[in-house]
Design a protein around this nucleic acid. Sequence first.
DNA 1: CGACTTTTTGAGTATACACTCCATTTTGGA
DNA 2: TCCAAAATGGAGTGTATACTCAAAAAGTCG
Lengths: 184, 184
Amino acid sequence: MARYQVGIRTESKILEATRQLLAEGGLDAATLKAICERAGVQAGSFYNIFPSKEQAIMQVAGEAIQAVDPDPDLSGTESLNDLVDAYIRFVVEQSDLARVYLQVAVTVGNDDSVTRRFLRHHVRRVERFAQAMLRESLVSTEGEAITKAEVLLGALDGLAFRWVLDRSFDFRKHARYAVSQCGR
Amino acid sequence: MARYQVGIRTESKILEATRQLLAEGGLDAATLKAICERAGVQAGSFYNIFPSKEQAIMQVAGEAIQAVDPDPDLSGTESLNDLVDAYIRFVVEQSDLARVYLQVAVTVGNDDSVTRRFLRHHVRRVERFAQAMLRESLVSTEGEAITKAEVLLGALDGLAFRWVLDRSFDFRKHARYAVSQCGR
DNA sequence: CGACTTTTTGAGTATACACTCCATTTTGGA
DNA sequence: TCCAAAATGGAGTGTATACTCAAAAAGTCG
């Protein structure tokens, strides 16, 4: 299935449309009709590229889950502030993906493969936060570091949800306050 | 439209079924067919009692939004620990309603009447938390109290989401840790 | 150009959904 | 016991959805 250029452009038009629709109205808004209309494409073209609607949505959701993580190459060297700043930047600058990230986390059925993937990434992020905390001596035992990291990430996720429901909420300020509370 | 006993029982069977389905699989799982099957009722009976499926769901969602608040009569006297304990109890003991609460918060379209209702309640809860913090001198200005309350509630909501995705997560322990961090 | 492959089109299919209709049964007060 | 109001069963309606297919168009490369 060597591809022509036009097909590759169509693929990215479809993915972009899907991303927008997911960000705007969640899974319900991302109907095949809506995706195709926004991408300027017919249903047949969609299915020439993707085997199913779900496949396209998974791809966008996967992108979002990846994007929430800061540069993996830096893992093990960054400060807690760096990690939180990366999360803030993700939410503020890539707000579409951030909304997708939060939408899929809750909307998809439990015990789903997406949920498992989501949790796997979450656990990895918790460990990264916990290690930064240990490095900065904010905490004495590894167990306490994990707990503290879960609470901080919980706060960041909760504040991000708050921001998704009400865009006038100052996410950056509250996220910074949350991390400052860990520092004592 | 004076009601007969049997109709009132049918109504509560339908509401119970709706509550369960919403808790288990969110809005998507609460189809008319699923609700009627679980309630042991036919579609015609459903529409004899509720004008629409949405109406029944709204009623359950409203219940959940109410239930997250601790006793309003105590407002202005309870400690921060009381407030957090009430939230923990809600999540742990009324887990079905708690899941509904979190599901509807995210699933419903933005700018929806449910979203507004949800936000109104949230703001009121933030104020209640902030006042408790002021009373306990955890904070000096009202502005800081509001910020701190937003962060604490964000953490509680975020941890509750974490628990919804993974029931083996120890919500109580992490929630307690979150509030203990405010105390310094 | 000409042969071949990929892409696009757009009408068409099957299905699941919320909701309706109304004949029939059940209820509960007089 | 009677009867009007309320509740029920269950087939039926319209609509939106994901997805298919065969023919036509457009891209690629010698």
